[in-house]
Design a protein around this nucleic acid. Sequence first.
DNA 1: AGCTTGAAATTTGTATACAAAATAAATTAA
DNA 2: TTAATTTATTTTGTATACAAATTTCAAGCT
Lengths: 211, 211
Amino acid sequence: MTKASLYQQLKQDIRQGVWPAGVALNQQKLSDYYQVSRIPVRDALQQLKAEALLVMAGKASLMVPPLTAAEAEELYQIRLQLEPMALRRAFPQLTFSIIGQAEDLLHRIEHDQNLSAADRGALNWQFHLMLYQASQSPHLLRLLHSLHQQVERYLGFQEISLNYADTSHQEHWQLLELLRAQQLDAAVALLQQHIQQAGELLTSHLRQQPA
Amino acid sequence: MTKASLYQQLKQDIRQGVWPAGVALNQQKLSDYYQVSRIPVRDALQQLKAEALLVMAGKASLMVPPLTAAEAEELYQIRLQLEPMALRRAFPQLTFSIIGQAEDLLHRIEHDQNLSAADRGALNWQFHLMLYQASQSPHLLRLLHSLHQQVERYLGFQEISLNYADTSHQEHWQLLELLRAQQLDAAVALLQQHIQQAGELLTSHLRQQPA
DNA sequence: AGCTTGAAATTTGTATACAAAATAAATTAA
DNA sequence: TTAATTTATTTTGTATACAAATTTCAAGCT
């Protein structure tokens, strides 16, 4: 378990609920669990805290933040502002090669039989990133990546959005169509709708059946 | 030099150019300089890295990121999206008490004689935060705080925007007027103009005379 | 009972020492 | 001379040990 991989592993385990939300994490227990000393554990915790994937629990310890519908709504609202911005900034630099690569990702999602819900979610996000990366906007990409990681935890293995997956997937194809046809405004409008739907689905679900 | 204060001190010293941009930081030298062992230094570095106030320099070491006009422009564009959002979300919760406190800050900026440029900058940001905090949106506030910290470093002790200070200050008073009069859309429009002007001032300055 | 107060125990924070990796330097070959 | 490869040196990464702080829990008080 090397440094970078401890951070990755811990992040994944947070997503997957190995460390329950709202309960203070114990550095010693984490050390034992991951078979390393407390020093690399502390490094990883510090980083995760700065990314808001962990929050303070009392004066000194950290915990996985409890999920609230209000925060989920907030995170989606922020994405709703920033992702269209990323698409607009990317547009002038979008090449057929990039659109082609995005297309490949959609094909993989369709045809690859043995994909877990988590895998599908990861590919979906890769699709979005593929387009946004053309924006050449490192800070914006960093923020979007961070925001995505946070909302990911709300999806709880994507059971929630499975129904929505088909609609969502259709919209991805449409998005590429519009971009190929140089219809930026229409593409942005579609993207906004796309994000808003996902956000509403999640928040309404959370309000019915909290965390 | 306790843990939290080391982080604060290091951050301030980065702003003030104690550690030159583009040069790899040395943990040992930082330890010597701040009179602590490398462990708390590492903790602080890790946090600053996650906040993008430090970036990788090679495979293992960190550095203060060089400033580019393109990145400054990007950061202001992001603020241009998120700050109006914060103001809109804050608006329904804005009380006369809050607006009064914001007013007090403006008075302090006007009347307090012995304020450094840095102090004035800090009070300016406090003014904005005072309004945004009513939004009760922790994630949005966290992002805005982080973004502000990043652009702060571009201002190089605010010499740049000294000319602009008067106009900016006027606009702050106008903003409060509009909010008191429940003119949200007009207030948002003014805020956007406010941010855009500051952004253009900075980026044009950086393009003339890089970093 | 409920609320303080004050030890005891746990947990986090830091220093030192050593291992691993990365960078710099030097040697050799083309 | 330049490029590549090896060796030396520096620098970062991690473990262990100890200090400081926080949390827990129990006793005493109102």
